[in-house]
Nucleic acid binder design. Structure first.
Lengths: 202, 202
DNA sequence: GTCTATATTACGATAGAC
DNA sequence: GTCTATCGTAATATAGAC
């Protein structure tokens, strides 16, 4: 109990620890509905102190969204997303995307809610469309392989699948130790995959 | 071609015609990201003129959200939602909710995005929870009737079902006359019902 | 019903002391 | 690294002329 990393509560902020606070407030009030004054109160330091750690409000948004995008795109590089039949790769990506949504919940929530009012937000939307496109290609391939029900419209199915997955940010809350208010993370991923693929697979 | 209602373009605003413009901008920029200046530019009149028609920005939000809630709750009063087995009533409500989302798209979109920063927004969230609760009861009853797959968690299924339906506001755009960029409204409703109930029904 | 002008407050960001 | 004080701008809303 001597060194600097030993203290239980942080006595000064780093850009990252400040980000944790900011992202929570952004999600509670919406990005545009959050002022620097709101952030300073939540962090327990003055407005001007925040500017010592980050260049401004938009940098906090950019950092948060980057983290979300990194998590999502990295799943596409995993073996399960790159090897095997398209339908199986799609199921793998569906499961992993669901898991990333839950593990990086506040960051992905922010990503899914941007409206495109600033350059940062428009960049986020473009990157997100890229990701959606990659998954849509898997669905298209699975359809060509004959592994999707013939009455399924691929374009529509892609959107309903993402709709179901992305809706997690509206209700999923991580389980706290001891008290389990919510389904466990792997149960949720199972349910999403099962529900979605019941309507898709041949 | 003489009377006042004959003109193709409105030369003055009513609260309702102003609402149409405001709701479009709210959805493009987000409610908090929209200023009265933005609204005045979109409407082609000055800021102060807007105050002649409505008390302020929040009244526009309240009017829009009321319209969305009226549409949603009215489906629960229709015969198909009140008679028959719970699973069939659930399917009916799912279809009709999907249809209302599409026919009242900009209004429902706004409803689904409020964050609770003002009294109006908190009222909207409470009413929306009421609606969700009513549908959740149908799912619960269908489960008790033995009409749901035994491995389906009712709480989770409710959320995934709403997630799929509500995600429509993120991508559905009404078809324009002549050029059909999107699936027709009844095709979408069919797909939603089919995809969702494939994972639910026994 | 719409306008210009303006009151008042809130916001993002900076300066400079400690 | 954090603070108080403040700048310049943009926000909601009102007053009063036409």
């Amino acid at each position: 109990m001597a060194a600097k990393k030993d203290t239980h509560k942080r006595d000064t902020y780093t850009p990252d620890s400040l980000l944790t606070v900011a992202v929570r407030v952004f999600n509670e009030r919406g990005y545009d509905g959050t002022s620097m004054e709101h952030l300073s109160q939540a962090a327990g330091i003055s407005k001007s102190s925040i500017y010592h750690h980050v260049r401004g409000k938009e940098e906090l948004l950019r950092r948060a969204i980057s983290r979300a995008l990194d998590g999502l795109f990295s799943t596409l590089e995993e073996p399960g997303a790159r090897e095997g039949r398209a339908i199986d790769r799609l199921e793998y990506v569906t499961r992993r995307t669901t898991e990333v949504l839950m593990s990086e919940l506040p960051y992905v929530t922010l990503l899914l809610r941007v409206r495109g009012n600033t350059a940062t937000e428009r960049w986020a939307m473009a990157r997100r469309r890229e990701f959606d496109q990659r998954v849509a290609e898997l669905l298209k391939q699975a359809s060509a392989d004959g592994d999707l029900r013939p009455d399924v419209d691929v374009r529509l199915a892609t959107r309903l699948l993402f709709g179901m997955i992305n809706s997690l940010v509206e209700w999923y809350r991580p389980a706290r130790a001891g008290r389990d208010g919510n389904a466990a993370s792997d149960e949720v991923a199972d349910a999403v995959v099962r529900t979605a693929f019941a309507g898709l697979r041949t």
